[in-house]
Amino acid sequence: MLKISNLQASIGEKQILRGINLEVRAGEVHAIMGPNGSGKSTLASVLAGRQEYEVTDGTVEYNGIDLLELSPEARAREGVFLAFQYPIEIPGVSTTNFLKTAVNEIRKHKGLEPLDAVQFLTLMKEKMKLVNIDQALLSRSLNEGFSGGEKKRNEVFQMAMLSPKLAILDETDSGLDIDALRIVAEGVNQLKRPDNATIVVTHYQRLLDYIIPDYVHVLYNGRIVKSGTKALAMELEEKGYDWIKNEVADAQAG
């Protein structure tokens, strides 16, 4: 489904991604972990089409198409979804307000009829239940004055509404209490289908108790330096990142 080869990206003079290789197949869940500032969110943003980052080398193939060629909206219509680490506040635009446009744009792209007001509301009600989010929250200005947890829940709600093929969740678990974490994780699991895939960026092994990953990768200094299974996440939880940093340093020295 997704094949990232030697992806390099920079912002201004600063190189952040230094050659990422990653392959994600339909039905899989990949977890990406790594110390702060290692480039996890940058990778997520580049996949979603943020133009601020300049891709200097490498390719990203997504369901047979060159993802990097597409505008952010075209990617979304092709089924790419990014749950933001820091969801943006947009005064005057409510979730309900823009999601209707979004849902129908994506439907149009798939050759489906647009949803009318009633159908849209029905879909909303269904997905609201899934992540246990309040209607009132969705009518307010997007993320404005939302608590950290509410913002994250809103991201998962949007994901449920848009039913993407490739969902990238950037630290969607940060700032969630235990109950919210379970709700969000259950939401993600319910959306899981054999024909879609999920990339979860996280710092905490505990999320992976709920969303069981097929693979765990460690991103460090702009590269994936280690890949493994869920056991790797447990090891990181226990030992931190120093041993990996040392391994990398040793490898470079040798």
């Binding site: 601020e52 505008s71 909206e73 969801p87 947009i90 635009v93 744009e105 848009l162």
Partner: peptide, 18 residues
Amino acid sequence: DEDALFYLRSRGIDADAA
């Protein structure tokens, strides 16, 4: 706000509509 614009576009809304 470029961030807001990107957020809306990342949901499938084209640049002009956003």
